[in-house]
């Protein structure tokens, strides 16, 4: 998802403080460090991945975002990134609240369960969809709370979370999501990328 990284990078302003929540092996952190002059840290739950990050000299904390974000003061980051991780949390609502407390703005990307291939898979095969973005079987997927672009849009709307930017990504092609094309994008996009603030 090179394109996703580029979009995230475009959202972030120079000389800002950034936190990557669920930073995995640090690929995005490195990408952003190489492209932007920013002060970036990460938090990662897996021991193996945190060790990979720290081994690269990155400022990453091994921890559980659902509990450990509480140690960061209010608005201590300009941007908090949550890249394709929201669906893996036990309580995504609390995580979003925390992101918006810790960060002045949050960048959230969601794999779209409303993508037509996903829908078709379930409709035609009758089994849990497996796609490029959702490669795991139902029994071993880390994804607990899959949602669609429309779900996330609605989620923000109902909580007065401001959507500064909403982009749809399909085969590396970017388009804007708005109220009038929401249903179409919800069918055609693989990934939604949102810049939100409270």
């Amino acid at each position: 998802m090179k394109q996703e990284f580029k979009i995230i990078s475009d959202f972030i302003e120079k000389n800002t403080r950034v936190l990557d929540v669920g930073c995995g092996d640090g690929t995005l952190i490195e990408f952003l460090q190489n492209n932007k002059e920013i002060d970036i840290r990460g938090i990662e739950i897996s021991k193996e991945n945190s060790q990979k990050c720290v081994s690269k000299g990155l400022t990453v904390i091994e921890g559980d975002a659902e509990k450990d974000l509480s140690q960061f003061p209010d608005k201590s980051f300009d941007f908090v990134i949550l890249s394709q991780t929201l669906q893996a949390f036990l309580n995504p609502e609390i995580v979003i609240q925390e992101l918006l407390r810790v960060g002045k703005k949050a960048i959230v990307t969601v794999p779209n369960f409303g993508f037509w291939k996903v829908r078709l898979h379930l409709l035609m095969k009758g089994t849990m969809p497996i796609t490029k973005n959702l490669p795991d079987e139902w029994y071993n997927t880390p994804n607990l709370h899959m949602c669609t672009i429309k779900d996330f849009y609605k989620f923000c709307y109902e909580r007065d979370i401001k959507l500064d930017k909403a982009l749809a990504l399909r085969d590396e092609k970017i388009s804007t999501i708005n109220k009038s094309n929401l249903n179409i994008k919800n069918l055609s996009a693989e990934l939604g990328i949102f810049l939100i603030e409270k």
Binding site: Q51, I61, G63, S76
Partner: peptide
């Protein structure tokens, strides 16, 4: 972290 210092952490 409370003072925004640059800190990494791992538990081995």
């Amino acid at each position: 972290n409370a003072i925004g210092a640059d800190v990494a952490f791992v538990e081995i």
